[in-house]
């Protein structure tokens, strides 16, 4: 079994949702993750609030990010166990992030060898 990272991308990270909307998404996200965990396929995960994010670039240039030129923003990453990328994609399809127009989930296999980045 391999591990995959599901990277949740919001098309426009500058959009601010209402607290009520946020709460509904939170609940849906917890149910989604709970479902993966109940299959013993959940490894780890974290949400990433948009506020105050920074990007440290070449020559140590620090910009307020992560928006920069594009508005696309990562809202969270979870790591799952799956037998194939297809199975990981099925997990990704359940993500409540995809309810937002233009949002995506990137599915990436985690490098197997215990090698640094």
């Amino acid at each position: 079994m391999d591990e995959y990272a599901l990277i949740m991308r919001h098309e426009d990270g500058t959009k601010i949702a209402s607290p009520e909307q946020m709460q509904i998404w939170m609940k849906q996200t917890m149910d989604w993750i709970g479902s993966i965990a109940a299959q013993n396929k959940f490894v780890s995960g974290t949400g990433l609030p948009f506020a105050d994010a920074k990007v440290v670039g070449h020559n140590n240039v620090v910009t307020n990010g992560p928006f920069g030129d594009i508005k696309e923003t990562i809202g969270g990453i979870i790591t799952v166990r799956a037998d194939s990328i297809e199975e990981a994609i099925e997990f990704a399809k359940g993500s409540p992030v995809l309810q937002g127009e233009g949002n995506t989930v990137e599915v990436r296999r985690i490098a197997k060898r215990d090698e640094m980045h």
């Binding site: 591990e3 990272a5 790591t79 990328i85 994609i89 990704a92 399809k93 993500s95 995809l98 233009g102 949002n103 995506t104 989930v105 990137e106 599915v107 990436r108 296999r109 985690i110 490098a111 090698e115 640094m116 980045h117």
Partner: peptide, 11 residues
């Protein structure tokens, strides 16, 4: 973790 180069995007 390091991620492998290929992947999929679900929209």
């Amino acid at each position: 973790r390091r991620l492998e180069n290929s992947g999929r995007v679900v929209k």
